[in-house]
Design a protein around this nucleic acid. Sequence first.
DNA 1: GAAAAGTATTGATCTGGATCAATTAAATGG
DNA 2: CCATTTAATTGATCCAGATCAATACTTTTC
Lengths: 248, 248
Amino acid sequence: MLKQDLSKKYEVKCQSCSISRLCLPVMLAETDIEHLDAIVQRSRPLRKSELLFSDGEKFENVYAIRSGSLKSYTISEDGIEQITGFHLPGEIVGLDAINSGSHPSFAKALETSAICAIPFDKLEELARSMPGLQQQLFKVMSQEIREDQELMMLLNKKAADERLAAFIINLSQRFGRRGLSSSQFRLTMTRSDIGNYLGLAVETVSRLFTKFQQNELIDVNDKEVSISDAEALSSLAGTRCHFVQGEK
Amino acid sequence: MLKQDLSKKYEVKCQSCSISRLCLPVMLAETDIEHLDAIVQRSRPLRKSELLFSDGEKFENVYAIRSGSLKSYTISEDGIEQITGFHLPGEIVGLDAINSGSHPSFAKALETSAICAIPFDKLEELARSMPGLQQQLFKVMSQEIREDQELMMLLNKKAADERLAAFIINLSQRFGRRGLSSSQFRLTMTRSDIGNYLGLAVETVSRLFTKFQQNELIDVNDKEVSISDAEALSSLAGTRCHFVQGEK
DNA sequence: GAAAAGTATTGATCTGGATCAATTAAATGG
DNA sequence: CCATTTAATTGATCCAGATCAATACTTTTC
């Protein structure tokens, strides 16, 4: 590869980014996307286990995921890790830092991941002149609030198997929306991560994967999952499949 | 009271509102507050158990609480209620509806409560010309996201007594910030509401109140709570060594 | 102001999932 | 490549808190 290519290697413009329709530009006109693109900073991809930001770090950017996946988590005073979310391409990470001015959580790559850093002060300024961008920012944050409410229901009111089923269905839908198979995918997080997120012990998660397999709901081979009976899994999850079928 | 007074009865302007420093106007100049005040709609207070909005209702306003308290909650398909938050004066309710355009939750008054309705389209428009207001909106939403993360930690990783202690400490701090006593206050929600919110059975909540009283952490008389040992209660809410026995 | 409905407390019992323990499998790194 | 660490599975045991049950108290309604 030529030298000049290296410096441009990660320069996928918003205009040509494959997941822009799931990301901040979703509501923007072509010319507006260019303005957004102009403030976006791209750097070399994060490798597995590398941190995007840490608790206590000064808040300067929010981050859009272009490819790969991350987990975000907090660590309490007594050193206990709590995973607060898994993030896929098109999603915005770091919004929890706006209020205090410093990140209250960590974000770590679960696999090699390409990230766009967006300086928040510039984004705010841009949002003032671009109604569609302001709206999209409000929507993204609103959605995160709503999703946390659903998660609260999951953690407070659902049994272990319902939680795991909901988790798998949720991942499936999110993969589907990104143009990937919603019936077959690779888990980039460990069983322990899943348990941590869902408030279950690793052993319970492992046993449930085995049980789901025995009941022919899914076919699981280590990290590789394929959904055999989406209907039954959804009904166990207790969530209506609000996306009409037709995805492969 | 004279007739013309009735029509003006609830017209407490933002400029003279006692909790404006905790509400949206916090970062605004006097003239900006006037603009905000101009779009705020006030009506007769909600009485106990009246709904501010319901799941499925078209999203038009966000709401600022002037006095009283509310709970917000979702109801799953199988009819199970999940309380997602309790709201005090100065807090903004309804932000979870921005994304979908319709409310995904209910908000119900826990006592007689004065509410300001703020048309969101007008608020968005105003935010474009008022950087401080846009910033405050982002901050309020960011804070809600961060608080939900903390709650997730509480629900996933903490024992029943730690959850209730954290809940009481949290309420105490919020009352304090509103110029009320942080050591003595009235719970406006039922034991059942508290249990629902914290993922505990009513019986467990009731038993814990009794136990906290016996251990002289609090003094509780039905809805009236006074904190006797804030130090101990805080430490219970935060860190706790799982190996130490000694409680009977 | 009596009846009904909702709220709170306390005791007895039961159980889902945590914890402990052991083994196997898969990454990681020197 | 082998060695070490980390991840996953499966079995056995245990317990925090749910559930069931009974009573009392408090608020609402007619």
